[in-house]
Design a protein around this nucleic acid. Structure first.
Length: 113
DNA sequence: CATCTGACCTAGT
DNA sequence: AACTAGGCCAGAT
């Protein structure tokens, strides 16, 4: 077997949390990292989400923004499927690549999950 | 092979 | 309260 520290465990865990985000809500990388027990591993969360494209079931990575509510990951999204567009389609108001009323639509996996 | 960067955040000064 | 440095881990150069 592999090491006790299974990298896929983290991946799967991230996907699990992200998929649990309700439509019309958003969360942050830090919140996910924290609920996973890796408070400072927020960067890793972003990298994991990078591989989430084309995953089945689909991972709503567009519902994950940074702590300030900015769509920092939008630059890495496919042009056919802009992050903001998907969020708007779910009822989230986006302005200048930033979530409007971020705290209102914020979904904390630690509290809600 | 060594160094740096990157969907970020927390802790320390 | 503002700023700096550190951490996390893998891909890219």
């Amino acid at each position: 077997m592999k090491d006790a520290h299974d990298d896929r465990s983290f991946e799967h865990d991230v996907y699990d949390v992200v998929r649990a985000i309700p439509s019309g809500r958003v969360t942050s990388y830090g919140a996910i990292a924290k609920v996973l027990g890796a408070t400072r591993a927020s960067r890793r969360v972003g990298w994991v989400l990078n591989k989430s494209f084309g995953k089945q079931p689909a991972v709503p990575a567009h519902r994950v923004v940074n702590r300030l509510g900015m769509l920092t990951g939008a630059i890495h999204f496919p042009a056919d499927r802009p992050m903001a567009e998907q969020l708007v389609a779910e009822g989230v108001v986006i302005e200048n690549d930033t979530v409007v009323d971020f705290e209102a639509v914020f979904w904390d996996p630690m509290t809600e999950l």
